[in-house]
Design a protein around this nucleic acid. Sequence first.
DNA 1: CGCTAGGTTGAGGTACGTCAAGCTAAGTGG
DNA 2: CCACTTAGCTTGACGTACCTCAACCTAGCG
Lengths: 250, 250
Amino acid sequence: MHGRTDKAGQEFLRPLLAVLERRDTISAAERAALENLPWRLRTFPLETEVIAAGSRPEESCFIVSGFASRAVYLPGGGRQLTSIHVPGDFVDLHGLLLKEMDHSVIALTECTMAFAKHSALRKLSEKLPHLWRLLSLTAAIDGAIQRSWITSLGRRGSTERLAHLICELCVRLEIVGAVSEGTFQLPLNQTRLADILGLSVVQTNRSLQKLRAMDLISWTGGMIAIVDRPKLAALAEFDDIYLNLLREPR
Amino acid sequence: MHGRTDKAGQEFLRPLLAVLERRDTISAAERAALENLPWRLRTFPLETEVIAAGSRPEESCFIVSGFASRAVYLPGGGRQLTSIHVPGDFVDLHGLLLKEMDHSVIALTECTMAFAKHSALRKLSEKLPHLWRLLSLTAAIDGAIQRSWITSLGRRGSTERLAHLICELCVRLEIVGAVSEGTFQLPLNQTRLADILGLSVVQTNRSLQKLRAMDLISWTGGMIAIVDRPKLAALAEFDDIYLNLLREPR
DNA sequence: CGCTAGGTTGAGGTACGTCAAGCTAAGTGG
DNA sequence: CCACTTAGCTTGACGTACCTCAACCTAGCG
């Protein structure tokens, strides 16, 4: 919960910049504007609430390090994690418009977030429309990811669904440089993974084992290694078009 | 496919205005700006493509009358409809940022759409930031609806899922005045409904019959009548918070 | 040493899907 | 007017994918 004012090395902005620059170029002025926003950094322990459902936040945040999720808790006691977020993801930019949160944001691992006040973001949207379009673009991509997830939940079996998730996470983590040789950290236990996949823990375990038995991935100690990426993508029917990986003027 | 220039009675704008004014007030200038956009009206027959997956549209559109869906077609031959849209919904505002469409938009019934060029919308976003925020808000609500649908697909049984969809459609259609005494038109056959629900036609049919047997709804000739709304909402665990029905400054 | 969180496995139930047949109502051509 | 077709709804039988419950195993930790 330590404030930041040093303009020199805004190291924590790197993942956000990577996400934006993957889709378009950012000018020096735009970068400076981002660096000069009065960011507030804060670290959340595992499974704690970053933003509470029903609250009316006056800030939005992106992930500096760790993983986070949007969570909907059901009256019956279960929950569905409706998205998973990686470093560089603006998790609740829509909070600026929606006012009241219809879901929680929780830390899926220990997680550092950078907060900026809505008022500051709104000013930025007026002064730097192109930069704002890029931030809105990330929100639009977020919507595309949700559509793809709806397709997975509606029409794919448990193993293919898991494979699709792994393929997507790999691409998104590559963008922020968190993948080396098809290997990346995903320190989730199988219970949390099940909450994402819309499955029981048992079925999640069996799907994982199937992927391992097929020699498509290995998963040990929170590290995923994709052994055979083309085959994994084929199994999942994964097509990365929805992630908008084209770098072009927006 | 007839152009429009008459400024007098832009009757077709009414559903869009209803959707926006449900969330905030619109000034006379904003209304005039919407009326003066060079809209292009076009009617699509049942099951035709309004926007093709993979295309790079230069316009965005909202629904004037009828129902439309976003559709993802799977290699196996099936499809998932990832959203359902009603009059007043801006279906592909995100196309402005995403450039390339990751899904199709199809007419679920005969359907009239109003198109505006991206260039015109972009100008509007610069000149009338508040109006633009309201349009962006509808896109954010769209995302919230998708999240709620992910929850349904992941954690609700077929009957509850169907009940939830009906509750949501009822609220959204009320906003545009298409519901009277709990009754509204939903001229979908069960095959298309199944494509939305992520179910087989058989299971869709049985879920419908269950709701009818419980005396919660009746469905005849494309008309749905909600017989017992509180019980239907309770069964679906429906909470309309995600639809952002509060009218407040945005 | 015992405790705990997390992974794994088996057994049995349930909610789906698939296949196939029969039904109805609307439309079409004679 | 009737035969015939067609789209859509409904039902039954049967298979499968998933869930729940319960046990057991392992590694870490006090």
